[in-house]
Amino acid sequence: MEPTSAVFWIALIQIIWVNILLSGDNAVVIALAARALPAHQQKKAIVAGSVAAIVMRIVLTLVAAQLLLLPWLKTVGALLLVYIGVTLLLPEGQAGGQGAKTATLGAAIRTIMVADLVMSLDNVVAVAAAAMGDFTLLVAGLAISIPLVIFGSSLLLGIIGRFPVIVWVGAALLGFVAGEMLVGDPALDQPLHRVDAMLGISHHSLALIAGGIGAALVLALGKFFLVRHQKA
């Protein structure tokens, strides 16, 4: 596709727009992971995490169709998101949590990369469709999106500093994404459709219910470990 053509620029705008719409949960993870760092390292974590996330998304997009067909991949991803959601609520030393004084830049970046890798499994399909098989267009669109993701993460980090309850909202969001992801696993397709039929609801409604359960699970586990830590 020629960069001088109108089709190229329309597709480029579509990729940037789709990536902005789909990166809200990723920005939440980046902000939550970076909040535990000293102030002088927070910006480094946001920039490094955002760039790494975009690079991984490019790689994922190239193999998205094959990855999404692998059985149990989304189940493993859902479990990882629940774990990450819980650890982001906990102080250092509890289930891998990161404390405000002892978290490291490397640990924060690893958390960002793992969470983004998992959450991007579905997102990359939309990005790949917008790119229409053009690798140059894909890379350009996602690269332009980097400063937008960084801005969103930085903005959230500032808001979290003023309203700590957003940390719990962000953790619940990860649990919600985990629940929805679990329902989308090809290995569980047939049994879950039987559940749909038994409950008399659509598969989309089941995904929303699973998301709600996932959010509640993350919050409940986070509260449990926090109470146990306070009593120790």
Rank of each mutant, 00 (worst) to 15 (best):
P3Y: 08
S5C: 03
A6H: 11
A6D: 11
A6N: 10
I13A: 15
W17G: 13
N19T: 12
I20K: 10
S23D: 01
D25V: 07
A27R: 08
A33V: 09
A36S: 14
L37V: 02
K44S: 14
I46C: 01
V47P: 02
A53P: 02
I54K: 02
V55Q: 02
R57I: 05
L60W: 12
V63Y: 12
A64C: 03
Q66S: 14
L68P: 06
P71H: 10
W72C: 06
V76T: 14
A78R: 09
L89K: 11
L89E: 14
A95F: 13
G99D: 11
A100I: 06
T102P: 00
R110T: 03
I112K: 06
M119N: 10
S120G: 09
S120T: 08
D122W: 12
V124G: 05
A130N: 09
F135Y: 15
V139R: 02
P147S: 05
P147E: 07
L148P: 01
I159W: 14
F176I: 10
A178H: 05
G179C: 08
E180S: 11
M181L: 15
L182T: 02
P191R: 06
P191C: 05
P191I: 08
R194S: 10
A197N: 12
A207H: 07
I209T: 06
G212V: 12
I213G: 00
V218H: 06
L221R: 04
F225W: 13
F225T: 03
